[in-house]
Design a protein around this nucleic acid. Structure first.
Lengths: 373, 373
DNA sequence: ATATGTAAGTAACCTTTCCTGACAAATGTG
DNA sequence: CACATTTGTCAGGAAAGGTTACTTACATAT
């Protein structure tokens, strides 16, 4: 906690306010941060010199006293490179503005690539994106499946064949840019928290794709877990043997790739859901999805209660998730938690589009380089 | 983030090391904290002046160089007053050393006392304890049932009739001592984390008494939740209608005081457990407890997976909890979570005795006054 | 039109804090 | 016995933010 750390912290506070609340005067920032106008002035002049903020002229509204000169974050002055490795076939990358909007897209095949070859392909894609950016690149954010430490070391990512790979450090060295790597479900949660309609009191984002992953944000920060494996909800048992007896609404517990049976993924993944509704009449399909939703609600209830989470966000194909499934899950969640929890808990679809994963990876950079979340 | 804040932080780091690792030399502390020897020397001289630490003579071990003078936390120089309000009939209070050992006990009846009268009784008990302490009192810690904000404001505590009561502020003013108030399940978690055998990577403490409450510590800090209601696991549904069909191992879901049926509390609270095993042969009692344990494991699985919690700690009557119930819960927990979780998760009884709640309340003071957790 | 009050932003100075470099003291080692 | 090693302290300096006082610029009351 050197003085320069305090300075960096104050700088982050200023940037955070400019990011979330838009252009402000120095005096506004001083009031909001609790610093003095003098200190804010000094910080702003540093930020002006770095080109991160710019003066936008005087405030329009007429008030008593000297009119304020607004200072705004130059979201157009820097860009962020983000890559999403959730897909097994292709890596999707983009150049984003600080505001989260995508400016350029590139993707590359990773079909069959593992180990060092996959790293090389990723490096090449990042380089291509960095070169495609007309603006200076603030940093690179990568969202990848697997267990990843806060420092960006991939503990294990089976589908890429990565084990104990210091990916962030490797890429940082290779690209000469700050690189941040995190689990894809976690980046999705960050994206929702920062760019979505989150309330700010914490949230969980459940990503339904080939499998199920979750990211949890509490007090503005990701929950990492003791062995960096937080959010691994896909392999919690959600279907019991005994659920089978009263008419088999979900069928027998299905075997799972993990070797056990009845995991949440065996009913909630996209392939499992598609199989389940395939060829069914709409009403039957709705009932089938509702059965899965109920199971999801049962799994979520203890988590929501234990953490007093105000909202759970679903990410994945709307046609499968945003209907009977979500409604049944919310009903089960409300039914199975005490009123103080169930009365306020939300279960909604993500407010971001399919670029949610990318903007989440961008938040890694915003957070790492500017201290903004 | 004034310079003095940084100073306070460094001071906390020094105290933290002395608290957890025992006496050290100034040079040791400098290495451990990353500060320079000069800065540590300065901090230590302040702490010496405050009487919080003392010099303990030179280190015994013979090493090359000038012998180090050890500096130790004076756990005998200050005491902490702690009060546990978990019981409906009596409040239990104690004077503790910084090491967590109890020096004096006092208790007082709160039978039927609510609102201001209960506050008065609590104030009187605190005053009595403070006067009974032969040493200066560092502060007062109170663990109470109910929903309580981090600032020590009781949002609601129905059994005391407290609603939106700024208890910590009230007591601080009344006693002239720093007072910290938190939920009793949360203080129990803090106590286990600080004084117990916790691994440090986070833990959940489940307190089984008249009801069920949980406290969760992640990254060294309590999880409070969006509306300060984190840990309210007692009213998560744990017994389903459909569990009834295959031989009724738990009986029908029982009605709960909360108005719903099948809450965890209806099977896991102490009264419920006693009723369940009453008059049964030992083998049958064990089976009955195991059934409850299995239900607990099912509720815990999603929480443990979502947070990647390394351990869950049970607190309550050993004869009921530490046997078939705990074993069945652990088995269910392991059976229903993926290997990376189930392989390492622990489910054990608390390593503290019945004073766990008190020492947890003491940690509130340690943490609030010294920054030690 | 003028005076007054209010607010924004800046300059000079002070305090706090901690770092760097140098040094004395005390001990083991060759 | 000379020398390296370690501990702890002293002196000087750098970084940071607060305080006070000032200028600038506007709105409003007289």
């Amino acid at each position: 906690m050197l003085p320069e750390h305090a300075r960096a912290h104050h700088r982050s506070m200023v940037l955070q306010h400019l990011f979330h609340s838009g252009p402000r005067s120095r005096a506004d920032l001083a009031r909001a941060t609790g610093l003095t106008r003098v200190t804010v002035s000094d910080l702003v002049s540093s930020l002006l010199a770095e080109g991160l903020v710019s003066e936008l002229g005087v405030r329009a509204e007429a008030r008593v006293g000297k009119p304020a000169t607004l200072v705004g974050l130059r979201t157009d002055a820097f860009s962020i490179v983000a890559v999403d490795l959730a897909d097994d076939e292709r890596m999707h990358g983009a150049v984003l503005e600080l505001s989260g909007t995508v400016r350029e897209r590139r993707s590359a095949s990773v079909r069959g690539l593992t180990g060092a070859a996959a790293v090389e392909a990723l490096t090449a894609l990042c380089r291509e994106l960095a070169e495609a950016s007309p603006l200076p690149v603030l940093g690179v954010g990568v969202g990848s499946p697997g267990v990843i430490t806060p420092a960006g070391c991939v503990v294990q990512a089976p589908n890429r064949g990565w084990y104990d790979l210091p990916l962030a450090a490797r890429l940082t060295e290779e690209l000469g840019l700050p690189v941040h790597v995190a689990n894809d479900a976690n980046t999705a949660a960050l994206g929702e928290f920062t760019y979505g309609d989150a309330t700010g009191g914490g949230l969980m984002v459940l990503t339904v794709g080939g499998g199920v992953g979750a990211g949890i944000v509490l007090d503005g920060a990701l929950v990492h877990g003791d062995s960096h494996a937080a959010g691994e909800l896909g392999h919690v048992t959600a279907v019991d043997e005994r659920d089978d007896v009263d008419g088999a609404p979900l069928g027998r517990p299905a075997p799972c790739a993990c070797g056990r049976t009845g995991c949440l993924e065996t009913v909630l993944s996209v392939p499992a859901l598609r199989r389940r509704v395939e060829g069914l009449a709409p009403a039957d399909a709705a009932a089938a999805l509702a059965q899965v939703g109920r199971r999801l609600g049962i799994v979520l209830a203890p988590v929501v209660s234990a953490l007093n989470l105000p909202e759970v966000v679903l990410r994945g194909p709307r046609e499968l998730l945003d209907g009977p499934l979500r409604e049944a899950a919310l009903a089960a969640l409300r039914e199975r938690t005490m009123p103080v929890i169930s009365g306020t808990v939300q279960l909604r679809m993500t407010s971001l589009d399919e670029d949610g994963a990318l903007s989440g990876a961008a938040v890694l950079v915003l957070s790492g380089q500017l201290g903004v979340t």
